[in-house]
Design a protein around this nucleic acid. Structure first.
Lengths: 116, 116
DNA sequence: CGATCGTTCAACCAATCGGTTGACAAATGA
DNA sequence: TCATTTGTCAACCGATTGGTTGAACGATCG
């Protein structure tokens, strides 16, 4: 599936960090169903509006959410690209769980060769 | 590829949280090449031994690393299962970036139906 | 106009993070 | 036996997290 190494950027840091919170993963789930306002995202949680707003900002800074202001509402939508990158990072290790260990070791050695 | 929803457990929290740090991702990368001691993992970083030890513990608590004590060395190996789970979580959204948006919405609606 | 809605912001709080240092312990090597 | 290696643990530090409350602000409704 994915075979190349994903760069270790701060964006990758922020994406995994954003995903490390269950509330935010719930928001991603909700956003995958379509655009929502910040209020829509706050409602299913039991947090204050302000807290939900902060979570949205975390997702935004990770590049996973786009916001568009319409009247008094802020409408959020999912930007899948960072999710895809995180998935690629993990995909690099797919060989680890789908092939035998010594086979993986060989694959990694080849990568070392390439990077010389 | 992956189609089912991954449960939102604390383990998922811990795995993403563990992956949100670049040093730890480096350790995962190194461990994918084969077993190493804690010292081996500390060496490429410029941190103290104690710091590296803490990172290994984070990976352990996330279920991503196994440890076996041999003499004075602690030998670590990668446990791919949690990586796989994280990958599945992300895989659920693969449809998001590989299909059109309205098509995804329909898929999600089907999921809603199923869960009734 | 004034009230209310949707939202952010600033300040604060306790808990966690990522690192340090220093003390300690067990295994190994001289 | 004594020194060294390989690690852990506890204490501490400043920065970040995830939440709260209260004030503010622009849009909308009556």
């Amino acid at each position: 599936m994915f075979n190349h190494m994903v760069e270790e950027t701060e964006e990758v840091d922020r994406v995994f960090q954003a995903l490390s919170n269950r509330t935010r993963r719930g928001m991603v789930r909700q956003l995958a169903g379509g655009e929502c306002t910040v209020g829509d995202l706050a409602r299913p949680t039991r947090m204050s509006f302000a807290a939900a707003s902060k979570h949205v900002q975390v997702l935004e800074r990770a590049g996973m959410v786009n916001r568009r202001v319409e009247g008094r509402q802020h409408i959020c939508s999912l930007r899948p690209e960072p999710l895809r990158e995180a998935s690629e990072w993990l995909g690099y290790y797919e060989k680890f769980w789908s092939e035998s260990l010594d086979r993986l070791a060989r694959v990694l050695e080849e990568d070392m060769e390439e990077s010389k």
